[in-house]
Design a protein around this nucleic acid. Sequence first.
DNA 1: CTCTCATTCAAACGTCCGTTTGAACTATGC
DNA 2: GCATAGTTCAAACGGACGTTTGAATGAGAG
Lengths: 208, 208
Amino acid sequence: METPVESTRERLLNIAEQRFGEGGYEGTSLRAITVAAAANIAAVNYHFGSKEALLRAAVSRAMAPVNTERRRRLDQLEAIGQPTAEQLIRAFIEPGLDLVLRRGDRGPVVARFIGRIAFDPSQRIRELYAAESDPVEARYLAALQQALPGAAPESVAFGYVNMLGLLALHQSLALSPVPGADESEDPGKLAESLIAFLVAAFDRGLRN
Amino acid sequence: METPVESTRERLLNIAEQRFGEGGYEGTSLRAITVAAAANIAAVNYHFGSKEALLRAAVSRAMAPVNTERRRRLDQLEAIGQPTAEQLIRAFIEPGLDLVLRRGDRGPVVARFIGRIAFDPSQRIRELYAAESDPVEARYLAALQQALPGAAPESVAFGYVNMLGLLALHQSLALSPVPGADESEDPGKLAESLIAFLVAAFDRGLRN
DNA sequence: CTCTCATTCAAACGTCCGTTTGAACTATGC
DNA sequence: GCATAGTTCAAACGGACGTTTGAATGAGAG
Protein backbone atom coordinates (compact mmCIF):
# COMPACT_ATOMS: atom_id res chain seq x y z
CA MET A 1 0.00 0.00 0.00
CA GLU A 2 1.44 3.38 -0.96
CA THR A 3 -0.77 5.52 1.24
CA PRO A 4 -0.42 3.86 4.61
CA VAL A 5 -3.94 2.94 5.64
CA GLU A 6 -5.29 4.64 8.75
CA SER A 7 -4.38 2.88 11.94
CA THR A 8 -7.11 1.42 14.10
CA ARG A 9 -6.47 4.16 16.59
CA GLU A 10 -6.98 6.87 13.97
CA ARG A 11 -10.10 5.24 12.58
CA LEU A 12 -11.57 5.07 16.05
CA LEU A 13 -10.87 8.75 16.66
CA ASN A 14 -12.35 9.73 13.31
CA ILE A 15 -15.52 7.74 13.74
CA ALA A 16 -15.84 8.78 17.38
CA GLU A 17 -15.72 12.42 16.28
CA GLN A 18 -18.48 11.78 13.80
CA ARG A 19 -20.78 9.71 15.99
CA PHE A 20 -20.33 11.70 19.17
CA GLY A 21 -21.06 14.80 17.13
CA GLU A 22 -24.23 13.30 15.74
CA GLY A 23 -25.69 11.60 18.78
CA GLY A 24 -23.88 13.03 21.77
CA TYR A 25 -21.80 11.08 24.23
CA GLU A 26 -24.57 9.19 26.02
CA GLY A 27 -26.42 8.59 22.78
CA THR A 28 -23.52 6.86 21.07
CA SER A 29 -22.40 3.33 21.93
CA LEU A 30 -18.91 1.95 21.62
CA ARG A 31 -20.34 -0.84 19.51
CA ALA A 32 -21.72 1.64 16.99
CA ILE A 33 -18.31 3.30 16.82
CA THR A 34 -16.26 0.13 16.52
CA VAL A 35 -18.55 -1.36 13.86
CA ALA A 36 -18.32 1.81 11.77
CA ALA A 37 -14.56 1.92 12.27
CA ALA A 38 -14.23 -1.76 11.29
CA ALA A 39 -12.53 -2.40 14.59
CA ASN A 40 -13.04 -4.89 17.36
CA ILE A 41 -15.00 -3.77 20.37
CA ALA A 42 -11.99 -4.37 22.60
CA ALA A 43 -9.85 -2.02 20.54
CA VAL A 44 -11.26 1.01 22.33
CA ASN A 45 -10.15 -0.21 25.73
CA TYR A 46 -6.83 -1.37 24.33
CA HIS A 47 -5.94 1.94 22.67
CA PHE A 48 -7.63 4.41 25.02
CA GLY A 49 -8.70 2.63 28.18
CA SER A 50 -12.38 3.51 28.31
CA LYS A 51 -15.19 5.23 26.45
CA GLU A 52 -14.59 8.50 28.25
CA ALA A 53 -10.85 8.31 27.55
CA LEU A 54 -11.67 7.92 23.86
CA LEU A 55 -13.79 11.04 24.11
CA ARG A 56 -11.00 12.92 25.85
CA ALA A 57 -8.52 11.95 23.15
CA ALA A 58 -10.96 13.03 20.45
CA VAL A 59 -11.63 16.37 22.12
CA SER A 60 -7.93 17.07 22.51
CA ARG A 61 -7.17 16.21 18.92
CA ALA A 62 -10.08 18.24 17.56
CA MET A 63 -9.44 21.33 19.62
CA ALA A 64 -5.68 21.49 19.19
CA PRO A 65 -5.57 23.15 15.75
CA VAL A 66 -8.33 25.58 16.69
CA ASN A 67 -6.51 26.68 19.82
CA THR A 68 -3.23 26.91 17.98
CA GLU A 69 -4.76 29.15 15.36
CA ARG A 70 -6.43 31.33 17.97
CA ARG A 71 -3.15 31.76 19.81
CA ARG A 72 -1.37 32.58 16.58
CA ARG A 73 -3.91 35.26 15.73
CA LEU A 74 -3.80 36.74 19.21
CA ASP A 75 -0.02 36.93 19.03
CA GLN A 76 -0.20 38.58 15.65
CA LEU A 77 -2.81 41.12 16.73
CA GLU A 78 -1.00 42.03 19.90
CA ALA A 79 2.25 42.43 18.01
CA ILE A 80 0.70 45.09 15.82
CA GLY A 81 -0.89 47.11 18.58
CA GLN A 82 -4.14 47.43 20.47
CA PRO A 83 -6.65 45.15 18.73
CA THR A 84 -10.25 46.25 18.20
CA ALA A 85 -13.21 44.24 19.44
CA GLU A 86 -13.99 43.24 15.88
CA GLN A 87 -10.47 41.95 15.32
CA LEU A 88 -10.68 39.90 18.50
CA ILE A 89 -14.10 38.49 17.68
CA ARG A 90 -12.88 37.61 14.22
CA ALA A 91 -9.82 35.93 15.68
CA PHE A 92 -12.10 33.82 17.83
CA ILE A 93 -14.88 32.92 15.41
CA GLU A 94 -12.94 32.26 12.24
CA PRO A 95 -10.71 29.51 13.60
CA GLY A 96 -13.88 27.80 14.81
CA LEU A 97 -15.87 28.13 11.61
CA ASP A 98 -13.51 28.71 8.71
CA LEU A 99 -10.53 26.59 9.53
CA VAL A 100 -12.70 23.75 10.68
CA LEU A 101 -15.49 24.03 8.13
CA ARG A 102 -13.19 24.38 5.20
CA ARG A 103 -10.65 21.59 5.24
CA GLY A 104 -12.10 18.71 3.29
CA ASP A 105 -14.88 16.41 4.32
CA ARG A 106 -13.73 16.08 7.89
CA GLY A 107 -14.12 19.78 8.63
CA PRO A 108 -17.87 19.78 9.25
CA VAL A 109 -17.54 16.60 11.29
CA VAL A 110 -14.94 18.15 13.57
CA ALA A 111 -16.92 21.37 13.88
CA ARG A 112 -20.07 19.53 14.80
CA PHE A 113 -18.24 17.40 17.32
CA ILE A 114 -16.67 20.39 19.04
CA GLY A 115 -19.95 22.27 19.10
CA ARG A 116 -21.78 19.31 20.55
CA ILE A 117 -19.29 18.67 23.31
CA ALA A 118 -19.28 22.33 24.31
CA PHE A 119 -22.81 22.10 25.71
CA ASP A 120 -23.25 18.42 26.41
CA PRO A 121 -25.84 17.68 29.10
CA SER A 122 -23.17 16.30 31.40
CA GLN A 123 -21.15 18.93 33.18
CA ARG A 124 -18.12 16.66 33.37
CA ILE A 125 -18.04 16.44 29.60
CA ARG A 126 -18.57 20.15 29.15
CA GLU A 127 -15.55 20.64 31.36
CA LEU A 128 -13.45 18.63 28.91
CA TYR A 129 -14.19 21.31 26.35
CA ALA A 130 -13.73 24.14 28.81
CA ALA A 131 -10.37 22.79 29.93
CA GLU A 132 -9.15 22.79 26.33
CA SER A 133 -10.18 26.37 25.66
CA ASP A 134 -9.34 27.78 29.06
CA PRO A 135 -5.73 28.70 28.21
CA VAL A 136 -6.81 31.12 25.48
CA GLU A 137 -9.94 32.28 27.28
CA ALA A 138 -8.06 34.44 29.77
CA ARG A 139 -6.18 36.15 26.98
CA TYR A 140 -9.37 36.92 25.07
CA LEU A 141 -11.08 38.29 28.15
CA ALA A 142 -8.19 40.60 28.92
CA ALA A 143 -7.86 41.79 25.32
CA LEU A 144 -11.61 42.36 24.99
CA GLN A 145 -11.62 44.33 28.20
CA GLN A 146 -8.93 46.62 26.82
CA ALA A 147 -10.76 47.02 23.55
CA LEU A 148 -13.96 47.91 25.41
CA PRO A 149 -12.82 50.12 28.29
CA GLY A 150 -16.36 51.35 28.89
CA ALA A 151 -17.73 47.89 29.64
CA ALA A 152 -17.76 46.30 33.08
CA PRO A 153 -15.72 43.09 33.47
CA GLU A 154 -18.90 41.07 34.07
CA SER A 155 -20.29 42.46 30.85
CA VAL A 156 -17.20 41.49 28.90
CA ALA A 157 -17.41 38.00 30.36
CA PHE A 158 -21.10 37.90 29.50
CA GLY A 159 -20.34 38.83 25.90
CA TYR A 160 -17.61 36.22 25.75
CA VAL A 161 -19.80 33.33 26.87
CA ASN A 162 -22.47 34.47 24.43
CA MET A 163 -19.91 34.45 21.63
CA LEU A 164 -18.66 31.05 22.65
CA GLY A 165 -22.19 29.65 22.94
CA LEU A 166 -23.39 31.00 19.62
CA LEU A 167 -20.31 29.67 17.86
CA ALA A 168 -20.85 26.24 19.40
CA LEU A 169 -24.51 26.22 18.41
CA HIS A 170 -23.70 27.05 14.81
CA GLN A 171 -20.86 24.53 14.74
CA SER A 172 -23.12 21.76 15.99
CA LEU A 173 -25.89 22.62 13.51
CA ALA A 174 -28.30 22.55 16.44
CA LEU A 175 -29.82 25.82 15.19
CA SER A 176 -30.73 24.62 11.73
CA PRO A 177 -33.75 22.29 11.87
CA VAL A 178 -33.13 21.22 8.31
CA PRO A 179 -29.60 19.82 8.47
CA GLY A 180 -27.18 21.99 6.60
CA ALA A 181 -29.87 24.13 5.03
CA ASP A 182 -28.31 27.55 5.22
CA GLU A 183 -25.23 26.86 7.30
CA SER A 184 -23.21 24.72 4.96
CA GLU A 185 -24.08 26.48 1.74
CA ASP A 186 -21.36 28.98 2.45
CA PRO A 187 -19.45 28.77 5.70
CA GLY A 188 -17.72 32.04 4.98
CA LYS A 189 -21.02 33.85 4.78
CA LEU A 190 -22.11 32.36 8.07
CA ALA A 191 -18.86 33.49 9.67
CA GLU A 192 -19.33 37.04 8.39
CA SER A 193 -22.93 37.17 9.56
CA LEU A 194 -22.03 35.85 12.98
CA ILE A 195 -19.11 38.24 13.33
CA ALA A 196 -21.24 41.24 12.35
CA PHE A 197 -23.91 40.12 14.79
CA LEU A 198 -21.42 39.80 17.63
CA VAL A 199 -19.49 42.98 16.86
CA ALA A 200 -22.67 45.02 17.10
CA ALA A 201 -23.63 43.29 20.33
CA PHE A 202 -20.19 43.85 21.88
CA ASP A 203 -19.84 47.43 20.75
CA ARG A 204 -23.27 48.65 21.74
CA GLY A 205 -25.00 45.93 23.72
CA LEU A 206 -22.79 45.63 26.80
CA ARG A 207 -23.63 47.59 29.93
CA ASN A 208 -21.08 50.01 31.29
CA MET B 1 -54.71 15.75 53.80
CA GLU B 2 -55.71 19.35 53.16
CA THR B 3 -53.50 19.98 50.18
CA PRO B 4 -54.28 17.04 47.92
CA VAL B 5 -51.01 15.24 47.44
CA GLU B 6 -49.57 15.27 43.94
CA SER B 7 -50.77 12.45 41.76
CA THR B 8 -48.30 9.90 40.50
CA ARG B 9 -48.67 11.38 37.06
CA GLU B 10 -47.79 14.86 38.30
CA ARG B 11 -44.84 13.63 40.33
CA LEU B 12 -43.49 11.82 37.31
CA LEU B 13 -43.75 14.94 35.19
CA ASN B 14 -42.09 17.08 37.85
CA ILE B 15 -39.18 14.72 38.38
CA ALA B 16 -38.83 14.09 34.66
CA GLU B 17 -38.50 17.83 34.11
CA GLN B 18 -35.77 18.00 36.71
CA ARG B 19 -33.77 14.95 35.68
CA PHE B 20 -34.06 15.42 31.93
CA GLY B 21 -32.96 19.00 32.49
CA GLU B 22 -29.93 17.89 34.48
CA GLY B 23 -28.75 14.88 32.50
CA GLY B 24 -30.45 15.10 29.13
CA TYR B 25 -32.81 12.54 27.66
CA GLU B 26 -30.32 9.76 26.94
CA GLY B 27 -28.47 10.38 30.17
CA THR B 28 -31.53 9.90 32.38
CA SER B 29 -33.06 6.49 33.06
CA LEU B 30 -36.67 5.77 33.81
CA ARG B 31 -35.54 4.03 36.96
CA ALA B 32 -33.82 7.17 38.23
CA ILE B 33 -37.01 9.11 37.57
CA THR B 34 -39.40 6.63 39.13
CA VAL B 35 -37.26 6.16 42.23
CA ALA B 36 -37.06 9.93 42.78
CA ALA B 37 -40.79 10.25 42.17
CA ALA B 38 -41.53 7.40 44.60
CA ALA B 39 -43.37 5.61 41.84
CA ASN B 40 -43.21 2.14 40.41
CA ILE B 41 -41.20 1.64 37.27
CA ALA B 42 -44.32 0.50 35.41
CA ALA B 43 -46.12 3.74 36.21
CA VAL B 44 -44.41 5.53 33.35
CA ASN B 45 -45.73 3.15 30.76
CA TYR B 46 -49.12 3.06 32.41
CA HIS B 47 -49.59 6.83 32.47
CA PHE B 48 -47.68 7.86 29.37
CA GLY B 49 -46.90 4.78 27.29
CA SER B 50 -43.14 5.10 26.92
CA LYS B 51 -40.11 7.11 27.95
CA GLU B 52 -40.37 9.35 24.92
CA ALA B 53 -44.07 9.91 25.52
CA LEU B 54 -43.23 11.04 29.05
CA LEU B 55 -40.76 13.50 27.57
CA ARG B 56 -43.36 14.75 25.10
CA ALA B 57 -45.86 15.33 27.88
CA ALA B 58 -43.25 17.15 29.95
CA VAL B 59 -42.24 19.37 27.02
CA SER B 60 -45.84 20.26 26.28
CA ARG B 61 -46.61 21.11 29.86
CA ALA B 62 -43.45 23.16 30.33
CA MET B 63 -43.76 25.14 27.11
CA ALA B 64 -47.47 25.90 27.33
CA PRO B 65 -47.31 28.88 29.74
CA VAL B 66 -44.30 30.34 27.93
CA ASN B 67 -46.05 30.19 24.58
CA THR B 68 -49.25 31.58 26.05
CA GLU B 69 -47.39 34.52 27.53
CA ARG B 70 -45.56 35.18 24.27
CA ARG B 71 -48.81 35.16 22.33
CA ARG B 72 -50.40 37.47 24.87
CA ARG B 73 -47.52 39.94 24.55
CA LEU B 74 -47.57 39.81 20.78
CA ASP B 75 -51.30 40.49 20.76
CA GLN B 76 -50.83 43.40 23.12
CA LEU B 77 -47.98 44.91 21.12
CA GLU B 78 -49.76 44.58 17.82
CA ALA B 79 -52.90 46.13 19.26
CA ILE B 80 -50.97 49.28 20.15
CA GLY B 81 -49.23 49.74 16.85
CA GLN B 82 -46.02 48.81 15.09
CA PRO B 83 -43.73 47.21 17.70
CA THR B 84 -40.03 48.01 17.80
CA ALA B 85 -37.35 45.34 17.62
CA GLU B 86 -36.60 45.86 21.30
CA GLN B 87 -40.22 45.35 22.26
CA LEU B 88 -40.35 42.14 20.26
CA ILE B 89 -37.10 40.82 21.70
CA ARG B 90 -38.32 41.64 25.16
CA ALA B 91 -41.60 39.87 24.48
CA PHE B 92 -39.63 36.80 23.48
CA ILE B 93 -36.92 36.71 26.15
CA GLU B 94 -38.84 37.71 29.24
CA PRO B 95 -41.40 34.90 29.14
CA GLY B 96 -38.51 32.49 28.85
CA LEU B 97 -36.40 33.91 31.65
CA ASP B 98 -38.62 35.95 33.97
CA LEU B 99 -41.84 34.03 34.03
CA VAL B 100 -40.06 30.75 34.26
CA LEU B 101 -37.19 31.76 36.55
CA ARG B 102 -39.37 33.59 38.98
CA ARG B 103 -42.23 31.32 40.04
CA GLY B 104 -41.08 29.41 43.07
CA ASP B 105 -38.59 26.64 43.21
CA ARG B 106 -39.85 24.95 40.09
CA GLY B 107 -39.04 27.90 37.87
CA PRO B 108 -35.34 27.20 37.39
CA VAL B 109 -36.10 23.51 36.90
CA VAL B 110 -38.55 24.24 34.11
CA ALA B 111 -36.20 26.75 32.51
CA ARG B 112 -33.31 24.35 32.55
CA PHE B 113 -35.45 21.57 31.13
CA ILE B 114 -36.68 23.71 28.25
CA GLY B 115 -33.21 24.98 27.48
CA ARG B 116 -31.77 21.50 27.50
CA ILE B 117 -34.38 20.03 25.19
CA ALA B 118 -33.99 22.90 22.74
CA PHE B 119 -30.55 21.68 21.67
CA ASP B 120 -30.58 18.01 22.61
CA PRO B 121 -28.16 15.91 20.56
CA SER B 122 -31.03 13.99 18.99
CA GLN B 123 -32.77 15.83 16.21
CA ARG B 124 -36.05 14.06 16.92
CA ILE B 125 -36.05 15.49 20.42
CA ARG B 126 -35.07 18.96 19.27
CA GLU B 127 -38.08 18.81 16.98
CA LEU B 128 -40.33 18.29 19.99
CA TYR B 129 -39.22 21.69 21.18
CA ALA B 130 -39.41 23.24 17.74
CA ALA B 131 -42.94 21.94 17.22
CA GLU B 132 -44.06 23.62 20.43
CA SER B 133 -42.60 26.99 19.55
CA ASP B 134 -43.36 26.90 15.83
CA PRO B 135 -46.80 28.51 16.13
CA VAL B 136 -45.38 31.72 17.59
CA GLU B 137 -42.19 31.63 15.56
CA ALA B 138 -43.88 32.73 12.34
CA ARG B 139 -45.48 35.69 14.08
CA TYR B 140 -42.17 36.80 15.55
CA LEU B 141 -40.38 36.52 12.24
CA ALA B 142 -43.02 38.60 10.49
CA ALA B 143 -43.09 41.24 13.21
CA LEU B 144 -39.30 41.46 13.37
CA GLN B 145 -39.15 41.85 9.63
CA GLN B 146 -41.52 44.80 9.81
CA ALA B 147 -39.56 46.36 12.65
CA LEU B 148 -36.33 45.98 10.68
CA PRO B 149 -37.25 46.86 7.11
CA GLY B 150 -33.62 47.28 6.16
CA ALA B 151 -32.69 43.71 6.96
CA ALA B 152 -32.95 40.82 4.54
CA PRO B 153 -35.35 38.03 5.51
CA GLU B 154 -32.47 35.59 5.91
CA SER B 155 -30.82 38.03 8.26
CA VAL B 156 -33.96 38.36 10.37
CA ALA B 157 -34.20 34.58 10.53
CA PHE B 158 -30.52 34.43 11.45
CA GLY B 159 -31.08 36.87 14.27
CA TYR B 160 -34.09 34.93 15.47
CA VAL B 161 -32.28 31.60 15.75
CA ASN B 162 -29.43 33.35 17.54
CA MET B 163 -31.89 34.82 20.00
CA LEU B 164 -33.57 31.48 20.50
CA GLY B 165 -30.25 29.70 20.92
CA LEU B 166 -28.79 32.18 23.39
CA LEU B 167 -31.96 32.10 25.47
CA ALA B 168 -31.87 28.30 25.55
CA LEU B 169 -28.21 28.28 26.56
CA HIS B 170 -28.82 30.65 29.43
CA GLN B 171 -31.93 28.76 30.50
CA SER B 172 -30.05 25.49 30.61
CA LEU B 173 -27.13 26.99 32.57
CA ALA B 174 -24.81 25.39 30.00
CA LEU B 175 -22.91 28.67 29.78
CA SER B 176 -22.03 28.95 33.46
CA PRO B 177 -19.32 26.46 34.41
CA VAL B 178 -19.94 27.11 38.08
CA PRO B 179 -23.62 26.21 38.43
CA GLY B 180 -25.71 29.25 39.13
CA ALA B 181 -22.72 31.51 39.68
CA ASP B 182 -23.90 34.68 37.99
CA GLU B 183 -27.09 33.52 36.35
CA SER B 184 -29.29 32.83 39.32
CA GLU B 185 -28.13 35.68 41.48
CA ASP B 186 -30.59 37.94 39.71
CA PRO B 187 -32.59 36.57 36.82
CA GLY B 188 -33.92 40.02 36.05
CA LYS B 189 -30.43 41.37 35.52
CA LEU B 190 -29.61 38.49 33.22
CA ALA B 191 -32.74 39.20 31.21
CA GLU B 192 -31.83 42.87 30.85
CA SER B 193 -28.25 42.06 29.82
CA LEU B 194 -29.40 39.53 27.28
CA ILE B 195 -32.03 41.86 25.86
CA ALA B 196 -29.54 44.72 25.53
CA PHE B 197 -27.08 42.37 23.86
CA LEU B 198 -29.66 41.15 21.36
CA VAL B 199 -31.18 44.56 20.66
CA ALA B 200 -27.79 45.92 19.67
CA ALA B 201 -27.13 42.89 17.50
CA PHE B 202 -30.51 43.10 15.78
CA ASP B 203 -30.42 46.86 15.26
CA ARG B 204 -26.89 47.11 13.93
CA GLY B 205 -25.55 43.64 13.35
CA LEU B 206 -27.85 42.28 10.63
CA ARG B 207 -26.88 42.60 7.00
CA ASN B 208 -29.17 44.51 4.67
C1' DC C 1 -71.40 -6.57 50.39
C1' DT C 2 -70.16 -6.97 45.73
C1' DC C 3 -68.90 -5.72 41.44
C1' DT C 4 -66.04 -2.58 38.66
C1' DC C 5 -62.48 -0.14 37.08
C1' DA C 6 -58.42 2.55 37.67
C1' DT C 7 -54.05 2.32 39.73
C1' DT C 8 -49.97 0.24 41.84
C1' DC C 9 -46.91 -3.44 42.56
C1' DA C 10 -42.96 -7.01 42.36
C1' DA C 11 -40.99 -9.57 39.07
C1' DA C 12 -39.36 -10.82 34.94
C1' DC C 13 -38.65 -10.07 29.76
C1' DG C 14 -35.08 -9.61 26.09
C1' DT C 15 -31.65 -6.34 24.65
C1' DC C 16 -27.90 -3.46 24.80
C1' DC C 17 -24.34 -1.39 27.50
C1' DG C 18 -19.02 -0.74 28.79
C1' DT C 19 -15.56 -3.68 30.04
C1' DT C 20 -12.55 -7.87 30.50
C1' DT C 21 -10.44 -12.14 29.22
C1' DG C 22 -7.23 -15.16 27.07
C1' DA C 23 -6.03 -16.97 22.92
C1' DA C 24 -4.60 -15.98 18.05
C1' DC C 25 -2.25 -13.30 14.94
C1' DT C 26 1.55 -10.19 13.04
C1' DA C 27 5.77 -8.10 12.41
C1' DT C 28 10.32 -7.10 13.88
C1' DG C 29 15.06 -8.21 16.02
C1' DC C 30 18.23 -11.74 16.92
C1' DG D 1 13.91 -20.41 13.20
C1' DC D 2 12.59 -18.48 17.32
C1' DA D 3 11.49 -15.47 20.85
C1' DT D 4 9.18 -11.04 21.70
C1' DA D 5 6.20 -7.28 21.94
C1' DG D 6 2.28 -5.06 19.87
C1' DT D 7 -2.18 -5.70 18.15
C1' DT D 8 -6.56 -7.96 17.00
C1' DC D 9 -10.01 -11.25 17.84
C1' DA D 10 -14.37 -13.94 19.39
C1' DA D 11 -16.56 -14.59 23.41
C1' DA D 12 -18.22 -13.73 27.62
C1' DC D 13 -18.83 -10.78 32.00
C1' DG D 14 -22.16 -8.46 35.16
C1' DG D 15 -25.19 -4.84 35.11
C1' DA D 16 -28.50 -1.36 33.52
C1' DC D 17 -31.79 -0.30 30.18
C1' DG D 18 -37.01 0.29 28.45
C1' DT D 19 -40.85 -2.47 28.45
C1' DT D 20 -44.34 -6.05 29.69
C1' DT D 21 -46.91 -9.10 32.58
C1' DG D 22 -50.39 -10.54 35.78
C1' DA D 23 -51.67 -10.33 40.27
C1' DA D 24 -52.74 -7.20 44.30
C1' DT D 25 -54.78 -3.03 45.96
C1' DG D 26 -57.74 0.84 46.29
C1' DA D 27 -61.95 3.68 46.05
C1' DG D 28 -66.65 4.40 44.39
C1' DA D 29 -71.38 2.79 42.59
C1' DG D 30 -75.21 -0.13 42.85
